[in-house]
Nucleic acid binder design. Structure first.
Lengths: 190, 190
DNA sequence: GCCGGCATTTGACATATATCAAATAATTAT
DNA sequence: ATAATTATTTGATATATGTCAAATGCCGGC
């Protein structure tokens, strides 16, 4: 679940000026360091934790017919969890895997829900995040629906220039819905 | 913005047992009959109304490079609005067009926000709807990312069997991200 | 009931992308 | 450092889907 929105960041800053909230949050949260290859959530398991990335990169993907299909790349300030699995407590459709050493704040979904109920501003932030995530998905969908492979790659680069340095091509390719070879050729031509 | 979720329907039923809420809602809302070809919201304009479909069909689409690209089909109980435009008051990326005589309840985005603030249960329903919409988009994205045209068509049919009777092929085709001719051939072969 | 305009199907051909295979290049482990 | 492993590039060919064009089918208005 990705969002990154100025207004959300702002609200968070404001919210954290409240000491009661801040204390409750840091009591619920646990800082954790993961390393390359670690799995935050496994496809098929119920999502019990949400991770807020402080630094590092996390990839979301699922395996379908033996193929590894990337659904998202997540960086600092992104919230990593399966929205579907966390809200419905159903098996997660996706796996989240750490791509490089990554520092996160971990919170259990249960405690997250309690905090949301207790602090309306957090509930507000949650709602805005869900909206923002939906809008992000809409954009991604439009890109996938009618842009060519080359256009999709350029759109991705424009939005996340750092991605190419950090993530291997096969993951970027499946994220774009193309094969690794096609992506390599697109890059070669420019 | 689509959702259709059992839990949301249930919450709505419960919420409407509250007479105060019911009265406030029906004061804010206006029943309207639209006919084939009517436009509920035009791409480029700010979304000022939300429509709850009582009966009929509404198509969402956008024009890009002269092409007409369908983003959604909306039926009874769906909520029609541009989430992005309504929440941010920015120009709508999509147009909503009535495909057959359609009865709706219209409410201004402004009044909707007021109702959300006044009745926490409506705020709750809004949040669940946004989550549900995001999850629906995730599924659609996965379908577009790696299924073949034929598979995508079959998935659509499985989910909305009535669609083929009500909507012309060119719209279904662009919804699936393929051309009308390709869709016609898929149907011919079965 | 007939005409005119859309919607759909069908055909021939073009193109983007996939697949399979091999050759380099870059990382990682020893 | 060197070998081993993994990632990327490149090539030849196959395939799905797009494009353009024509034929057929369908429906609403006169």
């Amino acid at each position: 679940m990705k969002h990154q929105e100025a207004i959300i960041a702002e609200l968070l800053t404001t919210a954290f000026q409240d000491e009661t909230l801040r204390n409750a949050y840091y009591e619920a949260v646990q800082q954790k360091q993961f390393k390359k290859g670690d799995i935050l959530l496994q496809q098929g398991q119920v999502c019990r934790y949400s991770y807020s990335i402080l630094s590092g990169v996390v990839r979301g993907y699922y395996i379908k017919d033996g193929r590894d299909i990337t659904t998202s790349f997540n960086f600092a300030d992104d919230m990593v969890m399966s929205l579907e699995s966390a809200t419905r407590q159903t098996p997660s459709p996706e796996t989240f895997e750490v791509l490089e050493d990554t520092l996160v704040e971990e919170i259990s979904v249960e405690k997250l829900m309690v905090l949301r109920e207790r602090f309306p501003v957090l509930e507000k932030i949650w709602t805005l995040s869900a909206e923002s995530y939906a809008i992000w998905l809409e954009e991604r969908l439009a890109s996938l629906q009618f842009a060519t492979a080359k256009e999709r790659y350029e759109q991705l680069l424009a939005r996340y220039p750092e991605i190419v340095r950090k993530v291997q091509l096969s993951h970027i390719a499946s994220y774009l819905g193309i094969t690794l070879e096609t992506l390599s050729r697109i890059r070669a031509k420019g």
